[in-house]
């Protein structure tokens, strides 16, 4: 985690040490339990605030909006970012490499990519959300309207007149 000052970094380290030994259970909407380190779970701002509010660490956290397949993939990301250090140049490069491979694999299965995006949104995992939304945006970038329709299986529902008017606007933008 990037921190602004030495004092804050020290506080974060102390916090991590203190909480490092705790394990947290996340349960998918299919009832499957995943046990993760607290450092991993804290990648999610949603869970982090529940833990900090003196929450139910022992009882675990049911996640009614996330299925098992998606949760497993989300945890894969959180483990990598929560449990590993990112202080040295090498460590950061390793994380960047992980992100690149992680998103490339997701990109091959769009429906799953959207599921992971929505889970990242629901759980407020900022890094993962940035990664997945950027990936979706990249798919749109540089495409013509026709190519966009093909890429996303979109029905063509504009009238000729609509198209004419949009073209008029488009030439300006």
């Amino acid at each position: 985690m990037a921190t602004g000052s030495g004092a804050a970094a020290a506080a974060a380290d102390a916090e991590e040490k203190e909480s490092g030994s705790r394990m947290i259970t996340l349960t998918s909407n299919e009832g499957k339990a995943f046990v993760v380190t607290e450092a991993s779970a804290r990648q999610s701002a949603t869970i982090r605030s529940m833990v900090d509010d003196g929450g139910c660490v022992d009882k675990g956290f049911p996640l009614p909006n996330v299925d098992s397949k998606t949760l497993a993939r989300v945890i894969q990301y959180c483990d990598e970012h929560g449990n590993k250090e990112a202080h040295t140049v090498d460590e950061r490069a390793a994380l960047a490499k992980f992100d690149k491979d992680f998103i490339a694999e997701l990109d091959a299965d769009k429906a799953f990519l959207y599921d992971v995006t929505m889970a990242a949104n629901y759980l407020h995992i900022q890094g993962l959300f940035a990664l997945t939304t950027q990936c979706i945006a990249d798919t749109i970038k540089g495409k013509t309207p026709e190519e966009i329709r093909t890429a996303f299986g979109i029905e063509y529902d504009l009238t000729a007149q609509d198209e004419e008017e949009i073209k008029e606007e488009d030439t300006h933008a």
């Binding site: 429906a111 929505m118 959300f129 970038k141 309207p145 529902d157 488009d170 933008a173």
Partner: peptide
Amino acid sequence: PLPDDVLLDVLGLLAARDLARLSAAS
């Protein structure tokens, strides 16, 4: 499947030209 707020977050990453082209898709 993407909720509107997420969809808008994605669109917020696009340049004007891409947004304009997107408007002509449907």
